[in-house]
Design a protein around this nucleic acid. Structure first.
Length: 416
RNA sequence: GUGGGCGUAGCUCAGUUGGUUAGAGCACCGGGUUGUGGCCCCGGAGGCCGCGGGUUCAAUUCCCGUCGCUCACCCCA
């Protein structure tokens, strides 16, 4: 329609029946979170810009060119959240939730915003299911978080995914590694334009360049694995061991790096087929220094985000179709409508879904409506039925009909 | 930010080597059943052929621009 207002670029309406798939995903996720001891947080969409600049890293693509940032009416710089982790940590610190010796486990579900060029699986408003666990550096927690993620995907019958894992080490390992990597990169020629740029800005990113030429050149490059300090190496080995014992299939991906600066040690990603180039359905890792970077105490933690939009895409097609039993009341005339409305309310109070038409349509039209709404039974109430204190009950699939006394109708329908 | 592809009915798409009333399928509305849905048959409604400019006697068609969608790069979930 020309001239009508349309949704803005990169943002889309999520409509039925697709909303059923979203509900299913969230329902399963909530069940699993509950099983693992997680509680929900509902957080603001807006935060101070500084929160993201300090946590994600001022030089990252997200902060440097993808955030929806603006000044509010008092001139304060605000940003629509591009991710949730920084915000969860902020909320934990602000509300003093980090106190106590146990592990704090939170999840949050909602929209995130990044000003990127939209494409398949990538929107400017997208939705994440976020898991964060804080309070210990124990590798068992890394394993448990990954179990949780695998559990959600498994219950949703998501097939054909790969769990990629790596360790990014601690800041000390990273300094060592970056130095060695930079020397290596500088000593070689033939890098693509992007990588020549990244050589200076973010050498780690060269590692997962998709250019075949660059990957060739990288073959003899130093590996993060070889730069891990003893503690980090031990931590990583233990995580892999625990995953293996639990029978969780994973692939070590020594080149896996993350685009957010706060990650340390364990980093992982779930890649799916059938999503085009934006194939990361979930990603996460450890962020032991994040709380401190945000002015808080030393609070190790890790988490992940599931890209809900992408998950919906790869969910088996028959999922989330919510086939609710329902009845339709076809009433003819004002008096019948009144009786029908009362009956309908009674059925609904008892938990049986039902609908009726209010616009005095023909029986034919009402039958057609009943069919479209997917009614299993239609109750026909007209003058004839009313006069006899009965209603006609029609089973839609078979077409069988019978006369039922009005008082017996509700019990009859509810009993089946 | 860069590059490719595509914009015709609500949806999926034909079509016009530039020419008079622009088509199909699905969906929608009505009729075939004055109180009975689906299937079938018949009929109907629904289009500034994305927008602006140019070429031309004539543009939905060719050219330029623009906007939008889309895929890829980049980046990430």
């Amino acid at each position: 329609m020309a001239g009508t207002i349309k949704a803005i670029r990169g943002m889309k309406d999520i409509l039925p029946p697709e909303t059923g798939r979203w509900q299913l995903i969230e329902q399963v996720a909530r069940e699993v979170f509950d099983l693992y001891g997680y509680q929900e947080m509902r957080l603001p969409l807006l935060e101070r810009t500084e929160l993201f600049a300090r946590s994600i890293g001022a030089d990252t693509d997200i902060v440097a060119k993808e955030m929806y940032t603006f000044a509010d009416r008092h001139g304060e710089s605000l940003t629509l959240r591009p991710e949730a982790t920084a915000q969860v940590v902020r909320a934990v610190l602000e509300n003093r939730l980090e106190r106590g010796f146990w592990v704090k486990k939170y999840y949050t579900i909602g929209p995130m915003f990044r000003y990127e060029r939209p494409q398949k699986g990538r929107y400017r408003q997208f939705h994440q299911i976020n898991c964060e666990a804080l309070g210990t550096d124990a590798p068992e927690l890394d394993a448990e978080v990954i179990f949780l993620l695998v559990d959600i995907l498994g219950r949703l019958k998501i097939e054909q995914v790969r769990l990629l894992i790596n360790s990014l080490g601690c800041p000390e390992c990273q300094v060592d590694f970056k130095a060695r990597l930079s020397l290596f990169l500088a000593a070689k020629e033939g890098w693509c334009d992007d990588c020549r740029r990244r050589r200076d800005t973010n050498p780690l990113r060269v590692l997962d360049c998709k250019s075949q030429r660059c990957q060739e050149l990288l073959r003899p490059a130093p590996m993060m694995r070889d730069c891990l300090c003893e503690a980090c190496a031990g931590h990583y080995a233990r995580v892999l061991e625990l995953l293996g014992r639990a029978g969780v299939a994973f692939e070590e991906q020594p080149r896996l790096v993350r685009g957010l600066d706060y990650y340390t040690r364990t980093a992982f990603e779930v890649a799916a087929v059938g999503l085009g180039s934006q194939d990361a359905v979930a990603g996460g890792g450890r962020y032991n220094g994040l709380a401190r970077d945000l002015g808080g105490p030393d609070l190790p933690g890790l988490g992940f985000a599931i890209g809900e939009d992408r998950l919906v895409e790869i969910l088996p097609p028959d999922c989330g179709q919510g086939r609710q039993e329902k009845i339709f009341l076809a009433a003819l005339g004002t008096a019948a409508r009144e009786v029908a409305l009362a009956l309908l309310q009674e059925l609904r109070q008892q938990g049986l879904a039902g609908e009726m038409d209010f616009d005095d349509r023909s029986l034919k039209a009402q039958m057609s409506l009943a069919d479209r709404l997917g009614a299993t039974y239609t109750v026909i109430l007209g003058d004839q039925e009313l006069a006899q204190g009965q209603a006609t009950l029609r089973h839609m699939a078979t077409g069988e009909q019978e006369q039922v006394p009005l008082p017996d109708l509700a019990p009859r329908l509810l009993k089946r």
